[in-house]
Design a protein around this nucleic acid. Structure first.
Lengths: 213, 213
DNA sequence: TGATACATACATACATGAATGTATGTAAAG
DNA sequence: CTTTACATACATTCATGTATGTATGTATCA
C-alpha cells in the first residue's frame, strides 16, 4: 500500500494497540499472534513490525499509553497524605484511584492484561522486569504516602506504615483482580468498592472518629 | 527402555508432575514445553504423553494432587463457623489456612502456578473452566461459612455476609499473590500474615471484644 | 514552482525453528 | 502371550524474524 501521513501512522499505531489489548484479554497473550493483532486492526504483520519490535514491546507500549493516569493517581497519594485533614483526604484518594481503574476503559484494559494474561516467573525476562519496575514505582508512592500518614500520627502504631501500605495494596489488588476476572463478577467494585475499602481503612486509622465500629 | 513395575510407573508420574511444577514456576507455562518437562524428570516426551493428554491435563493433575489439603482447609471453615465460640475459632481457621498455603510446598506450588502463570481470558478453554470451577467451590465454602457467622449474629450487619466473604477472599488472594510474586518479597506472610488478616477480621466482627480499636 | 531524491509506512514473501500429536518400536511385567 | 510403560521416529502446523518490494509523503534545490 501507499505511505500515509504522520497522523495516519499515529492512528494505525493506536489501532494496533487497541487491537492487541482486546485480543490479549479475549484469548490471552501467549495465544495471540502478531498476525492476529494485525488482522484485528485490518493490517498485516508488516505494520506491527514497523511500530514494535515484538510482542513484549507491544505490551510495554500499552502500559506506557494506558497506565499514565494510574501513575498520576498514585503520585497524588502523597499530596493527599499531606492535606490539612489527611484521613478523609487520603480515603477519598484511594476511592478515586479504584474508581478510575474500574471505570476508565484504558486503565481497565492494561490492568486486566497485567493481572491475568502475563506470566510472572522466577526467571524474569525483559518484559517482566519492565512491569515489575513499574509496579515497584506505584508501591513506592503508596509506601511514601503511608510514611507521611505515620509521621502525622493518624495511623495505628502497632504495625509499621510500610506493612500497612503493602496490606492495602494487596487488598486493592485482590479486589480489582476479582472484579476483572472473567465470567460473572462476584464483586461489583463500582457499587461495593467503597464499603470494602473502608473496612480496611477504618482499621488502620487511629485517633478520634477514625474507626466506625 | 524397559517396562517398570506399577510402583515405578507411579513414581515417574509424580516425578513428571514435580518437574512440571518447578518448570512452570521457573519459566512459565507457555514457555515450558512437554519436552522440557520430560527432560527435567530424566525422561522423554513418550512418558509425558503416556501419563497425560497434553499440557493442560498436566496442570489439572497438578491441582488434583497438590490442592487437596487446600480444599480440606476451606471445607473446614463451615465447621469452625459453627463452633461454640465462632469468632476465635473462625479466626484461627483462617490463620491456619494461610499458614498452610505459605508453608506447605505442594500448596505453594499450585498456588503460584494458578496465580502467576496461567492465563485467564474471556474466551475460556477447558483448563480455565476447570480451574474456575475449583475456585468457585472454595469460594462457596467461604460464603457458606460467612452465612453461618451472619446467622449467629457475630458479623456487622451493614454489609451482606457474602460480600464480606468475597472481600476476605480478595484480601487473602492479594496477600498470597504478593508473597509469592517473584523477586524479593515485600510482605513476609509467615511473619506478618496473622496481623494483616486480623486487620480485616477485626473490622467485620461485631459484638463484645470483636474489635480491637 | 516543478522535478528529483530520500525517507516513511506499510505489504508481501521467505526461511527457520520449534512444539505438537501421532505412529511405531520394544523390553519387561503380569 | 498380552499388556504396560515408556522411547524413538515422523509429519505437520505455526509463529517468528527478516528481507524485500512499493507507493507515497516530504524536503531540497534549481
Amino acid at each position: 500500500m501507499a505511505r500515509k501521513t504522520k497522523e495516519d501512522a499515529e492512528r494505525t499505531y493506536h489501532a494496533l494497540l487497541d487491537a492487541a489489548a482486546e485480543l490479549f484479554i479475549r484469548q490471552g497473550v501467549s495465544r495471540t499472534t502478531l498476525s492476529d493483532i494485525a488482522h484485528e486492526a485490518g493490517l498485516t504483520r508488516g505494520a506491527v513490525y514497523w511500530h514494535f519490535r515484538n510482542k513484549d514491546s507491544v505490551i510495554e507500549a500499552l502500559w506506557a499509553r494506558n497506565a499514565r493516569r494510574l501513575q498520576e493517581a498514585f503520585e497524588q497519594l502523597e499530596t493527599h497524605a499531606r492535606a490539612a485533614d489527611p484521613v478523609p483526604a487520603f480515603r477519598q484518594a484511594i476511592h478515586a484511584l479504584i474508581r478510575r481503574v474500574v471505570e476508565e476503559p484504558e486503565l481497565g484494559q492494561i490492568t486486566r492484561i497485567v493481572m491475568h494474561v502475563v506470566e510472572f516467573t522466577d526467571e524474569q525476562n525483559a518484559l517482566q522486569r519492565f512491569l515489575n519496575d513499574r509496579r515497584d514505582i506505584l508501591h513506592d508512592h503508596m509506601r511514601a504516602a503511608f510514611e507521611i500518614l505515620g509521621q502525622r500520627g493518624v495511623l495505628r502504631n502497632d504495625l509499621s506504615p510500610s506493612l500497612l501500605a503493602e496490606g492495602l495494596l494487596a487488598y486493592i489488588y485482590g479486589l480489582v483482580h476479582s472484579d476483572f476476572s472473567p465470567g460473572e463478577p462476584v464483586i461489583d467494585l463500582a457499587r461495593n468498592g467503597r464499603a470494602l475499602i473502608d473496612l480496611y481503612l477504618d482499621s488502620i486509622f487511629s485517633g478520634p472518629g477514625a474507626c466506625v465500629c
